[in-house]
Amino acid sequence: MNFTNFGKYILLLKAAFRRPEKMKIYLKAIFQEMDFIGRGSLGLISIISTFIGAVMTLQIAFQLVSDLIPKTIIGSVNRDSSILELSPTISAIVLAGKIGSAISSEIGTMRVTEQIDALEIMGINAPGYLILPKILAGITMVPVLVIISMFLSITGGYIGGTLSGAVTAAEYMQGITTDFNPYTITVALVKAFVFGFIITSVPAYEGFYVKGGALEVAQASTRAVVISCISILACDYIVTQLLL
C-alpha cells in the first residue's frame, strides 16, 4: 500500500463512519457480521489454539534440560507467551485468511456486478452500509475469540504436558497460577482490537475499489490477505513496544 492508497483507505474509512441512515438496519447487519466472524470462526480458532498450546508445552519442556530450573516454569512460560503473543497474533493471521478473503471477495463481487452502484443511486452511503458493520463486528468479536484462544491454548498445554509426561498436572497448575500479571491480558486485548480493525477494514478497502471482473476480485482477495498479515505483524511490534 503506497501513500495514495493509504489516503484513499483513510477517506473510505471516514465515509464508512458517517451517520447511518437507519440504525435498525445497521444493527441487524452488525449482529449478522458478529455471528459470521465470531461463531463462524470459533471451531477453527479452538482447534488451532489447543494444538499450539500443547506443542508449546512440549517444546518448552524439551528446551528446559537443566535440573536447576523448576518444572513449574513450563506452565508460566506457556501462559505468558499464549496470552501476549501466540493467541492474539496467530488468531489474527488465521482470521485474516478466513474472514479477510471473504470480506474482500464479497465486496469486490458487489462492486463488479454494480451492486455498489445500485446502493449509491438509491442514496445509500455504500461504505457505511457495507463496511461499518464489518469493522464493528471485527473489533468486538476478535477480542472475544482471542480470550477463548488464550484459555484453550493454556488448556492445550495442560493436556499435552500431562499426556506426554513432560510435566505433572500439579506442576503445570502451579506454574500457570504463580506470578500472574493481569496487565498481559490488557496488552493482548489491545492487540486483538487493533487486529480486528485491520482484518475487516483492509479487505473491505481492497474489495471496494476492485475494477474488472472475477480475476481482479480474486487478486484483490489475495492482496487483502497479504497486506492484512503484514499490517498485523507490524502493529503487533508497535503495540508491544508501546505497552510493554
Partner: peptide, 21 residues
C-alpha cells in the same frame, strides 16, 4: 455526497446488468 442524497432518493434506476443484491 450529502447534497446528492436528496436528489438520489427521487431516482429509480434499472442497470443494464440488473445489479440485484
Amino acid at each position: 455526497f450529502e447534497e446528492r442524497i436528496e436528489i438520489r432518493k427521487e431516482i429509480g434506476m434499472l442497470f443494464q446488468g440488473s445489479a440485484l443484491f
